[in-house]
């Protein structure tokens, strides 16, 4: 089969901002990942905004706003008021409106990170809301998490295993956990991080630059 000669790439028309969801269990490190990604994308000159979801507070949004890493006006808060997955999957209207609002207020924004409230392994994002979504688990939750085959672990576009440094302290076989994660995900991407020390963050940012921002 002969491929036709390649013609030059067509210039892109203006595309809306990419929307990337970040979900995962309570305490797995979602907000820490958001904070590290803000710094990583700032260094890469990516025009960024953030939405955080909390149950009944704006705590995560305030944490990100106070971080000094991003213009506080670029951080929006959504109160789920119910199970966090309801506003990222069943009816993501609140988050869609928040993202639309950020795009209106900051024309040219390239990437919007949407952090879900902490949930369980069944949490997934609607494609109406996100173009790509990350699921964050951590080694302290136990190395059997991938084996439990939760929809979040299986269906996400990128699985992040955080807190790798804790593995020896909580009796977790990290290599086995990574292998199990890759096996249940049939080889789809898995990246290991230690957000507190920014380890693995560049790999996550590289992945998003390639798969979502199409920069490389």
């Amino acid at each position: 089969m002969n491929a036709p000669a390649l013609s030059p790439a067509t210039p892109a028309k203006t595309a809306p901002a990419a929307r990337v969801g970040i979900g995962g269990p309570v305490g797995s490190g979602k907000t820490a990942l958001v904070e590290r990604l803000i710094a990583a994308f700032a260094a890469r000159k990516v025009d960024l905004a953030v939405i955080t979801n909390d149950l009944v507070t704006h705590e995560d949004a305030e944490r990100v706003r106070r971080s000094g890493l991003i213009d506080p006006a670029r951080v929006s808060a959504v109160e789920a008021g119910a199970c966090p997955h309801t506003v990222i999957r069943e009816d993501p209207t609140l988050n869609i409106e928040a993202a639309d609002d950020l795009e209106r207020r900051f024309p040219g924004v390239e990437l919007i990170l949407i952090e879900s409230g902490g949930d369980n392994l069944a949490s997934t994002f609607s494609r109406d809301l996100t173009d790509f979504w990350i699921f964050v688990i951590d080694v302290a939750g136990g190395d059997d998490i991938p084996r439990k085959r939760g929809p979040g672990v299986l269906k996400c576009d990128l699985l992040v295993i955080n807190k790798a440094d804790l593995a020896p302290h909580v009796g977790v076989d990290l290599d086995g956990m990574i292998a199990e994660a890759r096996r249940v995900r049939a080889g789809r991407p898995v990246i290991v991080t230690n957000c507190r020390r920014s380890e693995g963050i560049d790999a996550v940012a590289d992945h998003l630059e390639r798969e979502v921002l199409f920069r490389t």
Partner: peptide
């Protein structure tokens, strides 16, 4: 349902697709 997608055609051309 994706509005951003990077994938190869059956001829091996890499496409980066975005939609409104």
């Amino acid at each position: 349902g994706r509005r951003r997608l990077r994938a190869l055609t059956d001829r091996g051309t890499e496409c980066a697709v975005s939609l409104d």
